[in-house]
């Protein structure tokens, strides 16, 4: 549950920005080794999650319409290829 929520909250953009920040900090050479090791680990974990995002593929597109009661309805949509 918690993990699922974390996955949903994962923002590629934020993760990438954080990785850039980590690299900058590490390259500044102004941090202690143990802090650097912690940053390295954080960076690598974010990197793995970004990598996983890059490997996702979507085969279907969705379609959003309103049903008879006027409620939003999301369903898969086949795009005819002709």
């Amino acid at each position: 549950m918690k993990k699922a929520k974390m996955e949903a909250d994962f923002k590629f953009e934020k993760a990438l920005a954080r990785i850039e920040q980590i690299v900058d900090q590490m390259e500044s050479g102004e941090i202690e080794l143990d802090k650097a090791l912690a940053l390295y680990q954080e960076g690598m974990e974010l990197m793995a999650r970004c990598q996983a995002t890059l490997e996702e593929t979507q085969n279907k597109i969705k379609k959003i319409t309103r049903d008879i009661q006027g409620r939003l309805k999301v369903e898969e949509h086949d795009l005819e290829e002709n």
């Binding site: 990438l16 990785i19 850039e20 980590i22 690299v23 590490m26 390259e27 050479g29 080794l33 650097a36 090791l37 390295y40 960076g43 690598m44 990197m47 970004c50 990598q51 890059l54």
Partner: peptide
Amino acid sequence: IRETKSTLSDLAQRIVSSINDML
């Protein structure tokens, strides 16, 4: 995605080489 992959692998290289340098 190709640009993003290369950005990411560049960052990965930088992070690995900076930790290696420090070690």
